[in-house]
Design a protein around this nucleic acid. Sequence first.
DNA 1: CACCTGACAAATT
DNA 2: TAATTTGCCAGGT
Length: 112
Amino acid sequence: MSESAENQSDFFERVWEVVEEIPHGRVTTYGDIAEYVGTRAAARTVGWALNAAIGSGLPCHRVVNRKGELSGKLHFGGPYVMEDLLRSEGVTFTDDGRVKLEKHRWRPGDTG
DNA sequence: CACCTGACAAATT
DNA sequence: TAATTTGCCAGGT
């Protein structure tokens, strides 16, 4: 495989590569992904990439904001879909309806 | 072609 | 401690 795979908007592609690496039952944050792909402040652009990745086979539901809130749950076809998916994978939530990042937080590169 | 919006986050006031 | 501002990338109007 050629390393010169940066032919398209490498930002989007990098985000997708990281997202598909998220282990089952774990979650990560937009900021962590953004920082890993090169730009910390591009967290909002990460959301853009995920929005385009829905239905692409990527576990977009494993990405939450810094507080553990499911910011993009509305983009999954319903406000309950994302939470249900995470609960289905064994992810636990707080009384505030937020993911327990302390228990499930995962960071890019931790798998390899 | 210029301005605004959007699944965020950190720093400043 | 809360509210405000700035940064980032892409797309739509």
